[in-house]
């Protein structure tokens, strides 16, 4: 039931944000049509951070309580997070091409930090599969989930200082026009609701997977 509501809510919000992004919001003066990708990229980047925050919280709770539901939550959230980090990187480089003339620029600290983020959470997923026992793999992953998240602000700080502050938080320079802000907010809420839906779905799938493998073991 809860899932049905979320599904329809996400769908409605997505439709609304598509309408706002492509039809309602005016084209930005300097960057032109490409700026519209911003209403996708920012929510996806935000969602990745939210997902990794959940990984961080889930990891701490798993280490303290040692109940597998927290590990499952962290793991599923990390999967979604890495998908959205990848999408952020892709949309980011689509944006970079017309704006800077290259697919990838090291001059944009947010792009660089996102790439590092991607590597950290890739390690999170890898370390689990390398562990000799499943339960230790979960503990190791939790540790990467904690260490990685604590590292994020320092990564952001270092990459920003590295390339100077130059385009600044270009997004919010002089504030967004109200119509742009509205579009962004609707898009962010659409993606947040999508994230919650995906997380619930993935967690229940993972639980089913585990139940199945338990049953399999018992029957053999």
């Amino acid at each position: 039931m809860k899932r049905k509501v979320l599904l329809w809510l996400s769908l409605a919000l997505m439709m609304a944000s598509l309408y706002l992004v492509f039809i309602y919001v005016p084209t930005e003066k300097e960057m032109g049509i490409i700026q519209r990708i911003f209403y996708l990229m920012v929510p996806m980047g935000w969602l990745a951070l939210l997902a990794f925050l959940i990984v961080f919280i889930g990891s701490i709770l798993y280490l303290v309580k040692r109940t597998s539901k927290w590990d499952t939550l962290a793991y599923c959230s990390a999967e979604i997070g890495i998908v959205f980090t990848t999408l952020t990187l892709i949309t980011g480089s689509i944006w970079a091409k017309p704006v800077w003339g290259v697919w990838w620029t090291w001059d944009e600290p947010r792009l660089t930090s996102t790439l590092i983020l991607w590597f950290i959470y890739l390690a999170y997923l890898i370390v689990r599969s390398f562990a000799i026992e499943e339960s230790r793999g979960a503990v190791f992953a939790a540790i990467v989930g904690i260490v990685g998240f604590v590292d994020l602000p320092i990564v952001a700080l270092a990459t920003t200082l590295w390339r100077g502050m130059h385009p600044g938080p270009l997004i919010f320079q002089g504030g967004l026009a109200p119509s742009m802000l509205l579009t962004l907010l609707v898009s962010i809420s659409a993606f947040t609701s999508l994230y919650i839906l995906l997380l619930i779905q993935r967690v229940s799938m993972k639980n089913d997977e585990m139940e199945l493998s338990t049953l399999k073991r018992l029957s053999s």
């Binding site: 590092i116 590597f119 890739l122 890898i126 390398f130 260490v147 990685g148 990564v155 270092a158």
Partner: peptide, 15 residues
């Protein structure tokens, strides 16, 4: 496993 974990985390101090 060590380099896979070590390098991304130490990026800020390497920079």
């Amino acid at each position: 496993v060590l380099p896979i974990l070590f390098f991304p985390i130490t990026v800020p101090i390497i920079i």
